[in-house]
């Protein structure tokens, strides 16, 4: 039986809090069932990580902690630095500065040990041609001493409806993605790193994949889920970091993002010539919809806003909770 004393304060990117322990829970993809389990170990610890390719920026001063059992969303537009971060974690590329640890081990010095405990689904990696699917999966599993891999391969292939006897070059993009998902899950890793895992999958298989990931997470597997599909992250992840132009601009629990008091305000003025500069703090993502209408995100004092608007002739004022997608987009822009 869990009590509140099992949990401590949650802190995220940029906190620099080495004592971080996060409260892990995941929501069932289909709905409301929440499963809680205490988190006592940091699985991924990224400290001031930067990567530059000559003068061009890959990522810049990223700090991030992911706790054991977490389902962590890593979200951002294309080119934001998500894959660069993942490639550093896998030691495919070296950081320009900063450090990263997985399971408390340095990703550069101890990469082999780390890889023995992770499963990775790349965004668009190819598979070795001249192999059949089954042969490829056995080959991948062999690195982990995969004596018991056969049953697991067949179980996962059945779930994702993948024909193991097909030749790799004959596979569609979606089926190649299934192979990549299976090879990452066969050895039952402690950490799953997923880079756009649902790309190319049909909705039914996507749903099964998400169910599978939730099951893995319930078993204690930490999931690092990189995506630019907001709905996926919203449905699956408990915590999220939003990355833009190589920097983490926001990191929080999904529920906390909803509760940030960020309001979407739309004002329709009676006259086109009214000065729309409200001159109050907390206005972001300002956008003029029409000569008479403005829309913006507001995180300031709502009373001050009402007071300002009261002095202007308006036709309509709406203040609403923005959907999570708009909150993400607000941080993206």
């Amino acid at each position: 039986m869990l009590s509140m004393s099992d949990f401590r304060h949650v802190d995220f990117a940029g906190s620099g809090n080495p004592d971080l322990v996060s409260v892990a829970f995941c929501s069932n993809f289909e709905g409301l069932v929440l499963k809680y389990h205490p988190v006592s170990e940091i699985i991924i610890e990224i400290q001031h990580l930067s990567k530059y390719y000559g003068h061009s920026r890959g990522i810049d001063d990223i700090c991030l902690n992911v706790g054991h059992g977490d389902f962590f969303g890593f979200i951002g537009p294309n080119g934001a630095g998500k894959s660069t971060t993942i490639r550093i974690l896998l030691n495919l590329i070296f950081p320009s500065s900063g450090s990263a640890k997985i399971f408390g081990l340095d990703v550069v010095k101890d990469s082999k040990k780390i890889r023995g405990r992770i499963g990775y689904v790349p965004s668009d990696a190819n598979l070795y041609d001249k192999m059949k699917v089954h042969e490829f999966l056995k080959f991948g599993a062999a690195f982990y001493g995969g004596n018991n891999s056969e049953a697991r391969i067949r179980e996962l292939a059945g779930l994702l409806e993948l024909d193991l006897e097909r030749k790799i070059p004959e596979l569609s993009t979606g089926n190649k993605k299934k192979v990549n998902i299976i090879q990452a899950l066969v050895h039952q890793p402690d950490l799953l790193i997923l880079d756009e895992p649902s790309t190319g999958l049909d909705p039914l298989i996507q749903s099964r994949l998400f169910g599978l990931l939730i099951e893995e997470n319930k078993r204690g597997t930490t999931v690092f889920f990189s995506s630019h599909v907001l709905s996926e992250v919203q449905a699956l992840c408990r915590r999220v970091a939003i990355v833009r132009e190589g920097r983490i601009i926001k990191s929080d629990e999904i529920s906390a993002l909803r509760d940030k008091q960020l309001k979407k305000v739309r004002i329709l003025f009676t006259d086109e010539n009214i000065n729309t500069d409200l001159e109050i703090q907390g206005i972001e993502s300002f956008h003029r919809e029409s000569p008479k209408s403005i829309v913006f995100m507001f995180s300031g004092d709502i009373n001050e806003l009402i007071h300002k608007v009261a002095g202007i002739r308006i036709e309509n004022l709406s203040i609403e909770e923005p959907p999570l997608e708009e909150i993400f987009l607000h941080y993206y822009q």
Binding site: N91, L92, K112, R115, G116, I118, Y120, P122, L127, N180
Partner: peptide, 16 residues
């Protein structure tokens, strides 16, 4: 051929 990501996510060092 973009198979490096697969290979280098296995427990195998660059030296190996």
């Amino acid at each position: 051929s973009k198979t490096a990501e697969f290979l280098m996510s296995r427990p195998i060092s660059r030296n190996e």
